[in-house]
Nucleic acid binder design. Structure first.
Lengths: 361, 361
DNA sequence: ACTGCCGTCTAATACGCATCAGATCACGAT
DNA sequence: ATCGTGATCTGATGCGTATTAGACGGCAGT
């Protein structure tokens, strides 16, 4: 490699961008003085106006731009928020599940003055995809994690670090060590049940997904709580688990004839249960809400075509993303130690009164 | 802030992560030796096996993880690709215009082993939103730019830098200095015209947007070229500019009665022209393709519900994103100097034979 | 035995900025 | 005349890693 520096520049320089030292030389002061004036900000009291002017002028003349890397190395902060998703962030098939979160994250990050660093390189590197990420993650001042299943071991190691971290979603396995922003599915589901009860429904069925993701567990808990609060009996088989494949037309008819008047189901990434239910109903000739009432937990955001149609609740994804960013930046700023920050936040989901549930006949 | 260093560590240390110096002490060698062994990779010949083992063991024992910041400062590379969009990357209203690009960018970045650094903070900082970009952008090894209108002055300054840059979209104002990956609208539009001509259409109208974005200019050029190539006359008024507001039902009727059998229009961010045309047609009672044939340039990607319906062409956004990343990483690797890299790339857009255009009666 | 050379490792330094402990000087108070 | 005392600025150093020049021994060749 040849010393590509300009005239009068030390040989090691890889670039010809001006540095603070150049400004200092031009202004006839020392490099620390330049540093104080340019980045010291409010701490730059005790600098003569004359000196300040000279330095500013020199910086302007040279077109100085601070090197973020050096800044970070020296100061230990670079206004970068890491964003780590356990799957591809921009999925091809799945209808942009992360998108509403990202909208909130982006907005709030911008407000807080942080840029977003998306860690994706490792998603294709091989067998232990998340092992090496943790190295890179430290590049940011703090990191946001999202995704249905988080890798326990890697998370454990990360938490042993002093890097601020926030998980988007509820997760209590790490106790207080893992701050998160989640959705209050329990309360929201109970409210949906209460809404149905107020419409006169007493025989309510809950059709949920197979796997035990926290959201599913919470929703079922909310369902049971809501039923209990309304004094409704929860007979055997009132909670149905399915991945969609066994949700036949006959089964649906059976429920109907047994006297079920309302069905609660949940929308998820895959939407298996929800979709299967709609399919079976359409095939059996049942209409919502004429024949059966339907409530969907966590319905997708409004689309552009008109008001919400599905009764249920909507997860405030945008607000959750923004809240997560606020929590993270708070932790970075060190508010965590003072206990000013609620490290575990559950956002409430608004009840949506749509057109799929009606008063029982 | 308190000096949180552990026991035996210098007070200035902000973190208790092990450094190369710690490994060196534990293994009884010097820090440069550790550096050589751990990151030197192939250049680490000339190291005794015994030493190598000791160092590796010590690194493993301490759970060493290299600091990307320091690495970058020292080596001038950090495997980060910047992504700068001139508007919010995750828009709320607009139907995820950037999304398909992002899918390609993410995939290819992962393959190339780069993480993605999204610069967003400046979008809210005030009057000259992009002025401060230069500061941040240099954090990455190279930067991808996207957005309809790029700020000339800032780009000019950036190009004076040695930072590799790629623009997603065609832009020739900077000559060869701004590498880009664009779409070949001219050829694609000409092919659409040819397709219509083969269906027997001779009176073809082109309805385009008002503003002179490059895509619009190219498409019109392609339209004219296509007409010429097919030996079709281009009479006065064959090209209509509109922002949608003046596209009345009467006007559409006028065209129809004048003998126009096919209309070519373009889909853009706002979709103003395209949407207005559809609205007017629907209001006038015209159906596609029964009454009029319609071709849409740059139709949105397939949605999940079935095969494409619109005749026209589709912009290969995913591939463009991937190509842009390849170009950028190539530039970073220094392939640019050897002329191995096509700094200006135009990707072809596949003709879509949909259901809105039919053989003329 | 002296020279030359290879293999192995280390001292020194760069990278660009921030921070801290003084240095320097002027000025007023004792 | 001496001693603070505040206002301004600088020297030295750190941040964690990569790189380069060269130190140090040992071994072969003459």
């Amino acid at each position: 490699m040849k010393p590509s520096g300009g005239p009068g520049r030390p040989a090691g320089s890889r670039t010809n961008r001006p540095r603070q030292a150049d400004i200092a030389r031009l202004a006839g002061v020392s490099q620390p003085t330049v540093s104080l004036i340019l980045s010291g900000g409010s701490a730059a009291v005790g600098i003569a106006d004359e000196t300040r002017r000279k330095v500013m002028a020199a910086a302007e003349q040279l077109g100085y731009v601070p090197d973020p890397i050096a800044k970070r190395l020296a100061a230990g902060q670079n206004n970068l928020l890491g964003l780590y998703t356990f799957t591809a962030t921009f999925p091809t098939e799945m209808s942009h599940a992360y998108h509403p979160f990202l909208v909130g994250i982006e907005q709030e990050s911008a407000i807080q003055g942080y840029d977003l660093l998306m860690f994706i390189a490792s998603s294709v590197t091989g067998e232990r995809p998340h092992a090496e990420v943790l190295n890179r993650v430290r590049l940011a001042d703090g990191c946001l994690f999202m995704g249905r299943h988080l890798p326990i071991r890697e998370m454990e190691r990360l938490l042993a670090t002093d890097l601020p971290v926030v998980y988007l979603g509820r997760h209590d396995d790490f106790g207080d060590r893992l701050p998160y922003v989640g959705a209050d599915y329990v309360t929201a589901t109970a409210e949906v049940v209460r809404h149905l009860a107020e419409l006169g429904h007493r025989d309510i069925l809950y059709v949920r997904e197979l796997d035990d993701a926290i959201s599913a567990v919470d929703r079922e808990a909310g369902f049971r709580r809501g039923m209990a609060a309304c004094g409704l009996a929860l007979d055997e088989g009132a909670v149905v688990r399915t991945d969609g494949s066994d949700l036949t037309t006959d089964r649906l008819r059976g429920w109907y004839e047994r006297g079920v008047t309302a069905i609660v189901t949940e929308a998820t990434d895959t939407d298996a249960a929800h979709r299967a239910l709609l399919a079976a109903a359409s095939q059996a000739g049942y209409r919502f809400p004429e024949d059966l009432s339907l409530a969907t937990l966590g319905a997708p955001e409004y689309t552009e075509q008109g008001p919400p149609a599905l009764t249920g609740f909507v997860v405030p994804r945008r607000e959750m993303g923004a809240a997560a960013v606020r929590l993270l930046t708070g932790l970075i700023a060190g508010d965590g130690a003072d206990g000013e920050l609620r490290r575990h936040q559950l956002m409430s989901c608004a009840l949506e009164v749509g057109r799929t549930a009606a008063r029982v006949r």
